[in-house]
Design a binder for these strands. Sequence first.
RNA 1: GGAGAAGUACCCAAGUGGUGAAGGGGCUCCCCUGCUAAGGGAGUAGGUUGGGCGACUGGCGCGAGGGUUCAAAUCCCUCCUUCUCCGCCA
Length: 423
Amino acid sequence: MLDIKVIRENPQRVKDAMKTRNKDMDALVDEVLAIDVKRREITAKNDLLKQEQNAASKDIPRIKKEGGDISAIMARMNEIKEEVKKGDAEVAQLEEQQQKIMYEFPNIPSDKTPIGKDDSENVEIRRWGEPKQFGFEPKAHWDLGADLDILDPETAAKVTGARFHFYKAAGAKLERSIINFFLNTHTEHGYTEIFPPFMVNRASMTGTGQLPKFEEDAFRLEREDYFLIPTAEVPVTNMHRNEILDGEKLPIKYCAYSACFRAEAGSAGRDTRGLIRQHQFNKVELVKFVDPETSYDELESLTNDAERVLRLLGLPHRVVALSSGDIGFSSAKTYDVEVWMPSYNRYVEISSCSNFEDFQARRAAIRFKKTPKDKAQLVHTLNGSGVAIGRTVAAILENYQNEDGSITVPEVLRPYMGCDIIK
RNA sequence: GGAGAAGUACCCAAGUGGUGAAGGGGCUCCCCUGCUAAGGGAGUAGGUUGGGCGACUGGCGCGAGGGUUCAAAUCCCUCCUUCUCCGCCA
C-alpha cells in the first residue's frame, strides 16, 4: 500500500509512476484525494463533538453528587449522541472507500528500476555459464521424464486434473534432494529455516498484496476463509504482521520450503507440457526484513544467494532487471534469475527477487525501532525464490542429459541422491 | 465438533457503569556508594490518527468487531485465540 501522505504531497509523482507501469490511474488519485480531504474534515468536526461529550461525562457524576440539575446537560448530550453516531458512520464509509482505492495502487517503481513498457525492455545484468552444446538432439524434460518413468502427468490428470504431476522413484528423490540441498545451502549463509503453514487467512493474503486484487489467482477453501499459499512469501512475511521488531535483530533472514498453489488463471495454453507451469509446485523461498537504509544492498545479496544454488548445480543462467512495465504489483524493483532451458532454447525464469520497500510492511504493519527509544518505522521487506524446485528438476534433466537418455547427477546432489546417474 | 474458564503494558495482576486504568516485578534515569549487593527517589499504556511552524493539543486504543447507555475494561451479541474436560484423529 502506498502512503496516503505521499499522494497528498505529490499526486503528480504517483500519477507519473503509475504510467511507467502502463497504468493510467490519474482519476483514482484525484478521487482518493477528494475522499481524504472530506474524511479529515468530518473527522475533525466529529472529534470536537466527542471532546464535548467526554468533558460532559466527567461533569455529570460530579454535579449529580453535589445535587445539581443535569437535565440541560442531558438534553445536549442526547443531541451530541445522534450527531456523533452520524459522523462516525460517515467517517467509516469514507475510510472504507479510501481503503478500497488504496488497495488498488501498485507499488511505485524504484528509480533503480529501468523504465520500459513490458518484458521486451528488461535489462540483462549478467550471465553465468554458457548454454550447453550437445553432440546429439537434446530432449525436452517431459520426454526424458516419461522415458525414465520418473515424471507422470497423465496419472495426475486422472487422480486430480490438468497441471499436476506425480514424481516417481529417482524423480521423487531428486525433488526431495534439491529441497534439502537448497535449505542446507541457505542456512549455511545465515538464513533461519522455516516450515510454514500451507494455508493462510485473508488478512495474510492482503498483507503481502495478493488480495484483494488477485483473488482469482489463488485457491480458496470453501468452508473456511483460508487460501492455499501461492508462495511461502505469504506465511513467512506475515509472521511479523502487526509487530514492532527490535532494530538490533535486523536484518532478519528466513528460508522456507513450501508447496505453492496457483490457479494460473488466464494462462490456458501456455507451457502446457512439463514442469514449468503447474497448479502445485515446490519452492524454497528467501524472505528478509531489513532496515530501509540497506534494502537495496540486501536485494543484491538476496539475488546472489539465489544464484549461488544454480552456480553450485552448474546450471547456466542469467540475471535480468525487470522493467517498470513488467514488475509485480507489490514490487519496487525486481531481478529475475533465468536458467538455460534447452527445450525452450532460451532462458526461463527460475527465481524472482524483489524489494518491496515499505509497500508490504505498510499493509501488514511490520515495523521496527532502531533503538528502544526511537519511534517505530516501517521495515523494508524482500523476497526471492531460492529457487523453484520443479523448474530446477526440469533444468537438471535437460542440461545434464546424455545421449542414451540417462541423466548425470550434478556433483553437489550426489550425497543426497546416493548415485551419480539416473537411468 | 460439544461443555466450561480466560484474554488489561515487557511479565504477573487489581479493577461489575462515572473525573487521570490500582499494585508488584522487570527495565531506564537519578541519589547513596571505593566496587558490588542492599536501600532511597523518579519515569515507564504502547501505539495510531487529526490540528498547529512550534512549545503543545484533540480523537481512538483493556483480544477483534458490533450493540445498549448521557457515559463501557465493566452490561449484551458475534468472532478469534489460549487453557481444562469430552468426542474425533495422523
